[in-house]
Amino acid sequence: MDVNMHLDRRADAVAETISDGDDLLNTAQIANMLGVSTQWVEIGRTRGYGPPFIRIGQRGIRYRRDALRAWLKERAEYRSTREYGAVA
């Protein structure tokens, strides 16, 4: 798999590699699973395009594994950027 390929294009494949469960993962684990940098995950979190997260305490951020899979599956449904704004 080409690691440099855009995340949306490989979201379905990445989602298949993530096992089921509701355990909590940290930012570094999420970045590793997605094949992106921790900075990408952090910026995505602040700008609203990253995976859903849970805030634990003042500085603790965690991600539920099952929410990450759902987020990836949702992203895989689009085939072009034009579809993002389309109402279903």
Rank of each mutant, 00 (worst) to 15 (best):
D2W: 13
N4H: 15
M5A: 14
H6S: 11
D12N: 04
V14W: 00
E16N: 04
E16M: 02
E16R: 11
T17F: 04
I18Y: 08
S19V: 08
G21E: 01
D23R: 12
L24F: 05
L25C: 12
T27P: 03
T27F: 00
I30L: 12
V36G: 03
T38N: 02
T38W: 00
Q39E: 15
W40L: 05
V41S: 07
E42T: 13
I43T: 15
I43M: 13
I43Y: 04
G44Y: 00
R45L: 09
R47M: 12
R47D: 01
R47C: 12
Y49P: 06
I54H: 14
R55T: 14
R55I: 13
I56Y: 10
G57T: 11
Q58T: 12
G60W: 04
R64K: 14
R64C: 06
A67Q: 15
A67E: 15
L68G: 00
R69F: 05
R69V: 12
L72H: 07
R75C: 00
A76Q: 01
E77F: 07
E77H: 09
E77N: 10
E77Y: 05
S80D: 12
S80V: 03
T81W: 06
R82G: 13
E83P: 05
Y84H: 14
G85A: 12
A86T: 08
A86D: 08
V87G: 00
